[in-house]
Design a protein around this nucleic acid. Structure first.
Lengths: 256, 256
DNA sequence: AAAATAGTGTCTCTCAGACATTATGCT
DNA sequence: AGCATAATGTCTGAGAGACACTATTTT
């Protein structure tokens, strides 16, 4: 066995090892507020990000993403789940890994590699938490505001990267479901997509999404126990047909 | 400041820190062999993966992915680039990060979190290397064979995950270019896609890819300095039009 | 009636899918 | 002539895009 530079004979004693491997989580939610109009109307929706105010060095007093150090007894995903629960009081949500942040010097505490996740949380899951927490140190920020802030560490990069990934996935997968109730109207779905991807615009959205031939059954009509279509007039005078996502997830291709 | 479990007052002395943070790289290439026919014909293409035979504990004698430990002075991506160069002799290729592997106990040497990349390498870039390397310990394996092998660590999982990711990206992005020369024929492109994604089948492939209306200009005709279309009879009696990828990368959506 | 959202009719043009047919140059 | 690959012709029906129009219920 040789001692060449790419030797496999690694042993922790011979090299500097990392000082920690945390996970950080970009928690997105969509808040909805009733419009001020006296009549029924679609709510105003806004994409929000959860941030935590740091109480200790480094970046004391700055806002940053929730997160924390991984333990040797858990996987990185389990670590992120734990932090999600401990810091945001949230369980059972869609969470995905998206990148590692490892630039030397990114953390003044030492050589620390951060593993970034994003989570998509339904508004209702955060409402409980907001009651029993000191709102001054854990808060939702509107996306635009959060993007303009100077966050601790390289969390600004993480936020931008997470957002780009979520926007892409919003259009190519059915993650919109994470922000919707089981049964929803086409307008709600359209609104959610537009809230995450402001450039999204489809004048004939209803036609496309419900023409079951080409995009085969991403969603289906909700029906009651007797098979009659269910509708809702939550947001409108005229009741709208309710839909639900199916299990089907289409495969996309640029070649055909 | 409190000592509660999710305190920010982390300091390396108080907790166990990782014993290492390596990167491992799944290097894909497509080999092409001339057919045995006397006449001109399309070559036989095969997706291959580069593996290295381990010489030391753990998994001594087993085949595994190339990789190695990250240094505190480099980012994880730089680490992967270095390993790619040191272990496979490859530079300037498409490489992407795709996951972290962190299951407790995954590495008998300790608490080691591995960061997995895939690289797409043109056959030509590996040919040089194969000459000056002992072919007995660094080798290309046909994909199917590699999948059936028992690799060291959790590298079997990495290989399967990398393959799934590359297959998805082959259909949704223009990474096919990584396996093709600057200018190529439609048949070559079709073959490359099928080599990576065996289920891909498009009877009217030429029509679709060259109808510049809908999939606007993913590729364009190659032309000589006088603007005349260039063609090649590398693989056929009848010369075929050459194409090149443009910079355009289409955005896909399930909603319209 | 006015407002607000839900949903349909209709037209044009492109394109997908299928399959047959022609084109070119080598052996 | 026979072959392998390259490329076009032609038909059908689905669907995208645009825009006007109708439907339903509340205020």
């Amino acid at each position: 066995m040789s001692n060449e530079e790419h030797s496999d004979a690694y042993s922790p004693e011979n090299f500097r090892t990392p000082d920690g491997a945390p996970s950080d989580i970009v928690i997105f939610t969509i808040t909805s507020r009733e419009k001020a109009t006296p009549k029924k109307a679609l709510p105003t929706r806004e994409l929000q990000v959860l941030l935590i105010k740091r109480k200790v060095w480094p970046y004391e007093g700055k806002w940053a993403l929730p997160g924390g150090f991984c333990k040797e007894t858990e996987s990185m995903y389990e670590c992120a789940l734990r932090e999600l629960r401990e810091e945001a009081g949230v369980t059972d949500v869609h969470m995905e890994y998206f990148n590692v942040y490892s630039k030397p010097g990114r953390d003044p505490r030492g050589w620390i590699l951060s593993h970034a996740y994003f989570a998509l949380v339904h508004e209702h899951k955060l409402i409980n938490r907001r009651a029993d927490t000191d709102a001054s140190d854990v808060r939702l920020f509107p996306l635009e505001e959060a993007l303009a802030m100077e966050l601790g560490f390289d969390h600004g990069d993480m936020l931008r990267d997470a957002l780009a990934r979520v926007r892409e996935k919003m259009l190519t997968t059915t993650i919109a479901r994470e922000f919707l109730p089981e049964e929803f109207t086409i307008s709600e779905l359209y609104q959610v997509i537009q809230t995450v991807v402001p450039t999204f615009e489809e004048p004939n959205f209803i036609r496309k999404i419900t023409s079951t031939q080409s995009r085969q059954g991403i969603i289906e009509e909700a029906r009651d126990s007797e098979g009659r279509p269910k509708s809702s007039n939550r947001y409108s005078q005229r009741a709208a047909q309710l839909y639900r996502f199916t299990e089907y997830s289409p495969g996309l291709s640029i070649y055909g």
